[in-house]
Design a protein around this nucleic acid. Sequence first.
DNA 1: ATCACAGGTCTTTTT
DNA 2: GACCTGTGAT
Length: 735
Amino acid sequence: MTPFEQQMSRLNPTQLQAVTLPSQSALVLAGAGSGKTSVLTTRMAWLISTGQVTPQSILAVTFTNKAAKEMMTRLSSLLPINTRGMWVGTFHGLCNRFLRAHYRDANLPQAFQILDTADQLSSIKRLLKAMNIDTEKFQPKQVQYFINGAKEEGLRPADCDTGDFFQRKMVEIYVAYEAQCQREGVVDFPELLLRAYEVLSKNDALRAHYQARFAHILIDEFQDTNNLQYAWIKLLAGQNTVLMAVGDDDQSIYAFRGARVENMRLFEAEFAKNNLIKLEQNYRSFGHILDAANELISQNTNRLGKDLWTDKGHGEPVRIYEAASDFSEAQFVIEEIKAQINEGQMRRDIAVLYRANAQSRVIEHGLFNAGIPYRVYGGLRFFERAEVKHALSYLRLLDNPHDDTAFIRVVNFPARGIGARTLELLQDAARLHNCSLWSAVPFATGSGAAKLMGFTRMIDALRFDTQHLPLPELVDHVIAHSTLIAHYKNEKEGQDRIENLNELVNAAAAFTQIEGHASDATALQSDTDNTIITPLAGFLSHAALEAGDNQAQAGQDAVQLMTVHAAKGLEFKTVFILGLEEGLFPHENSLNEQGGVEEERRLMYVAITRAQDRLYMTLAQQRMLHGQTRYGIKSRFLDELPEASLKWLTPRASVYTAWDNTASEVATPSFGSYKKDENNTMGFRVGQAVHHAKFGDGVVVKLEGSGEDTRAYVNFGGSYGIKCLALNVAKLEVK
DNA sequence: ATCACAGGTCTTTTT
DNA sequence: GACCTGTGAT
């Protein structure tokens, strides 16, 4: 049997149905651990190996580079085909490829650079300064959010609402921002998608070409698509294109960044018609864990609906532990981890999941003291490190000197006496001539003009000296001759940075080897234009689109610490879910949002379904948060789990009870530790009915602190839930 | 140019 | 409580 035939024989009937579906579009509702990636890759292999299509006529799109890579790896292990030139990648990666090939149609310079989120933010800050806009009123982050939000809805400034003054100003900034990006030849993340979308929609010939080319489009994690992504897919799909969208509405946890679960229903109506395939057999978890997940998620409304099942048996019940504090919660987790390691469990098979990053510290501390190796996910990634970004900025200037973000970043780094005043004059000159900072250098006035000339000469020299060098040597040359290395040698803490710079050379070498001269360039060549992007341009795109691993002490067997979001798509033998308290999980900020609690519930569903063999859920009665001690209430989600699948390790139902948010009145709350309060609490007492201008009527459930510092927890019921209010600030009326 | 201090923030995050 | 950002003083 070939590897492909073996794989086919392993599929269950539903999976096989999805893999071999004839030329009809379908929506595959793939539950957690149901073999979703297998189905996608095997279907691609099936389409190719049965001769229905060539590899080039398949488009497969994912959200993360990791998923794309995984798909490629699995596909090439199934079939002895050359995957190069195949359109498998992330939305952004594919749009980048498309725009490189059609840069003229897209009205972009061939060497356009990609701004990552941080670059975009500094670009916006620069713009706001130039426009003399009050950054108190128009915060750069907000502006960024506005612009990206508009782009993700497919809106250009002309399409935006200009209702009030604020909106008009925002749109005005958006206009200026677009002009600035265009002048600099840079493109932010959502622009990659929007520009690609617009080119396709305006250019009939090009659209026809791609629609004819792609016989099959496969989309992974469809529940995470935003409006623009869905629109882009619809544009690429021709009359005869067959689409397969794979996703799980119950695992939609990215609404906060624009994901639209509704796209699944839309897709079903627009393409899949009656082709809804449900993958419901779970191969990951034991029964009790699955029962808990199913029961929890059944509380959500408006689901497409599915029930996971397993034939693995019940397994162990879900263990619940109520600790006195976050500290003892950590102690418990660490003791359990120790015990499991003693039983022979690998550390890497144990995961500690939490809602918010701030929760990791206590656990880290405990693990560190216990001498247990651990790895925390999240934080700075390789290509986001300052020294790496500096080096990349030099490289970007070689490729496109008009990239002002890169220019500003390194024009005086390492310091070469070009100060704020000099740059201000340069920016004036650039504005006057409506050109990039680079082009404005000859017009620069003031004492620093000569130094600026020196800088541009240096960049020109770097470009000239490296023009025939292979990529790794080019990078090496640039980090040396830009004096970055020398600069860090003089810094006390510079050794790590130098190592990272050398690592960048390695990354360039690895990029040359894998991506090579081959894949991207040939792929582009095969498509209309004769564009061949240089290895440097390719590497820069790669650096922007794939931020690299988080600091990885990879290889070492370590306990895994991460947020629930970061855990999506992963599985572990043993999982700890921490902080099952109201206000934390579900997070208090979600309670005000439309559909917020349901998204939190899906998040909990994702967390539970990560566990294969053993699941712990813990809560703490008291926890340090934002520098204050907060007293927790048991999470409502604990009450939504089936009793039969749980095992309480601490006495069940301590005094803490979840709030019934539907009740408008809470009588005497059965609340634990609003202890000893004969203090002066500004005339408020627990159980008192109060009124707040914004939140309406509520009941004080707990008082903290005293005098000026008194804080009241007030349950407003309904969508507001429990709020913590500082009484010297909040205007709270006694009713 | 460099450091120190104040001030604000603290849900989740990929590209 | 801890971290990052921005600003002001030397």
